[in-house]
Simulated assay, not measured.
Amino acid sequence: MIAFPNAKINIGLRVTGLRPDGFRNLESCFYPVNWCDALEIIPATNLAFTSSGLTIPGKASTNLCLKAYHLLQQDFNLKPVRIHLHKNIPIGAGMGGGSSDAAFTLKLLNNLFNLEISVPDLENYARQLGSDCAFFIQNKPVFAIEKGDVFEPLKLDLSNYKIVVIYPDLHITTAEAYREVVPQAPADNLRELLQQPLPTWKNRVDNDFEKALFLKYPVLPELKEYLYQSGAIYTSMTGSGSAVFGIFSPDFTQTLLVPHTTYAVWQGAL
């Protein structure tokens, strides 16, 4: 069985407070985008995990896809499988690529072995693998709160718009990003701002990680300005990583050329 785990962007991200469990509370819109990995799971004699494409840091035995398999193995008598992941979504970009791979592994195993796990139960399994893993089970726009693993419905349809995402070959870990941000109560209501027309989002729908990380990594504000100069209606850093995206009008047809050959660029429809 084959699936194509997709990335997500954060449209607005507020870090609102500390939690007793050591995590931070946040609020953000999670929105799926079609920058994808490729994931294949087939029955096998012995459990195995292989990967291709972008180099994945760490040992293969600690990959989230294998962790997803072992998580279900605790409750179901799963037969061995061979998992192959072709990694295409940049790592440390704030786009949830690893979380998506884990969530899609759960969904593929559920289908492959006819486990009949419900969507809410799949989300609960996914929450054990990472804070934003559960989003990729239903994979639709939501307003995320708490650790980013509790979702509220959000009416936001950007399907007529185009998007350009630039990853500047800069891996920012979640731990590094959170060290740089100070939780604070938001001054305005992000959910209400997201219901306003897209052109009003500039300078209002913001990402709390930008303030410190833009000072530390000047390439990030440079990319944001480049996207605005190229005609973007709204741009932002996504998540706690280093990818910067721009949302463009439906009639945008230009192919953006970034002068640095090590940068990864993806553009398409939202």
Rank of each mutant, 00 (worst) to 15 (best):
Q128G: 01
F104M: 05
S242W: 08
F209V: 12
F248M: 13
Y226E: 11
N6S: 12
R204H: 13
I233C: 04
T16Q: 04
S61Q: 13
I11G: 13
N207G: 11
A264C: 06
L106G: 07
L257D: 13
I83L: 04
Q254F: 02
S61R: 13
L213C: 12
A264R: 15
A102D: 04
D206M: 14
T253R: 15
G53K: 11
L71K: 07
R127G: 02
S242A: 13
P218M: 07
G241I: 06
D251L: 14
I41F: 00
A126C: 02
V244E: 11
G53H: 08
K79Q: 15
V165E: 09
T255C: 13
F104Y: 15
V119H: 05
V142W: 01
T261S: 15
F135S: 06
G241W: 04
A187I: 08
K140Q: 15
E180I: 00
N63W: 03
A212D: 11
L26V: 14
V164S: 12
G148H: 05
G17I: 11
F23Q: 05
E40M: 08
G148Y: 08
R82Y: 07
N77L: 07
S249K: 15
I56N: 07
G94Y: 06
D132N: 09
F214L: 08
P259C: 08
L78A: 01
A243S: 15
E123D: 00
E116K: 13
L26R: 05
Q254V: 05
K216Y: 00
T261Y: 12
T174W: 03
T253E: 14
G239Q: 09
L220D: 10
D206W: 09
T238F: 03
I166F: 04
P80S: 04
A3T: 15
A3L: 05
I56Y: 02
A7Y: 10
L47N: 00
P197H: 09
Q184E: 01
L215S: 14
T255S: 14
T235I: 05
E123I: 06
S51N: 06
L223Q: 02
G97C: 06
F245T: 08
Q74G: 12
G246W: 04
Y161A: 03
A144C: 02
T45S: 08
V150I: 11
D75W: 00
L78T: 12
L71W: 02
I83N: 01
W35Q: 05
S61E: 14
F30S: 09
W201N: 07
F245E: 11
G130I: 06
K224M: 06
S28V: 03
N46H: 14
L256T: 05
T235L: 01
L106Q: 02
N207A: 10
P250S: 10
T16H: 02
K107A: 02
V164P: 14
S159E: 07
L158P: 09
T200K: 15
E40S: 12
D157M: 04
C36R: 15
S249P: 15
P218N: 03
V142C: 01
Q229T: 11
N63H: 10
F248G: 11
L66T: 09
T55Y: 06
V165D: 10
L26C: 10
M95G: 07
A44P: 13
S28G: 10
P120G: 03
G17F: 07
D132V: 01
E192Q: 14
